[in-house]
């Protein structure tokens, strides 16, 4: 879970994810294997476990992930997390690995629109879902408003937490288009930044949601 929020308007408060059971996953494979010859090898895989208790692995498993609107087919070790599949198998390295255990939010992606830490999800469980990564937010040269206001307010330093914070901010605004400062703080509480960009991130999210950034006190320099 990316967030443990008590506020139902915030991401992470939704009921447990869609989840693909191994069984339904195998069925998915069966259908796709019948539909495309590129996945021919899967027919045997399906056949071999045609009884009621399908088992994946220990050998590599072919999967198709829909990422940023496009299908990608790879053969992966069944222990592969969604994060590893994105980074190692698909070379989509915008999604960062920092803690690899759900504590920092750097690996945040949207799975069927829901904010998800991809290090805590198996790649095989993401089959059939619509996955959006940080690479998929901009439309060509046009940045998502969240990205644009991050740039404006310098809501990044080393940038390693930034893809995760961008995704968490996007998910927050998708659910709550005009969050208060307090809601922003809660909504981003699953994301750690070591360089210390939080306060600029708040301003970026306020501005991306059409609100005024928090102004510092005005005083003439002596």
């Amino acid at each position: 879970m990316p967030h443990e929020n008590d506020d139902p308007t915030l991401p992470g408060a939704a009921p447990p994810g869609r989840g693909v059971t191994r069984r339904s996953f195998m069925q998915t494979l069966g259908i796709s294997a019948a539909a495309t010859s590129a996945l021919g090898g899967e027919r045997e895989a399906t056949a071999a476990v045609a009884d009621d208790t399908p088992v994946l692995g220990p050998g590599p498993v072919p999967i198709t992930l829909r990422i940023n609107g496009k299908p990608h087919t790879r053969t992966v070790d069944p222990a592969t997390t969604l994060l590893e599949a994105l980074r190692v198998d698909l070379d989509l390295t915008g999604t960062k690995e920092v803690c690899d255990r759900g504590a920092c939010g750097a690996c945040s992606v949207l799975v069927d629109g829901r904010l998800t830490v991809s290090c805590m999800m198996l790649a095989i469980d993401a089959v059939g879902a619509e996955i959006t990564t940080v690479e998929g937010l901009a439309r060509g040269d046009t940045l998502d408003p969240v990205q644009e206001s991050f740039v404006r307010h310098d809501a990044l330093q080393c940038g390693f937490c930034t893809p995760g914070l961008v995704m968490a901010s996007r998910a927050l605004l998708d659910e709550n288009p005009k969050p208060t400062l307090d809601q922003i703080k809660k909504g981003l509480s699953g994301n750690l930044c070591r360089c210390g960009t939080y306060t600029n991130v708040f301003n970026a999210v306020l501005e991306a949601s059409g609100q005024t950034p928090i102004a510092d006190a005005e005083e003439a320099m002596p």
Partner: peptide, 21 residues
Amino acid sequence: TARLDAVAKVTGRARYARDRY
């Protein structure tokens, strides 16, 4: 002026050493 590598960083295009597979 915004940080020169801000766009690379918010879009995930910035490739760090850890991203070199």
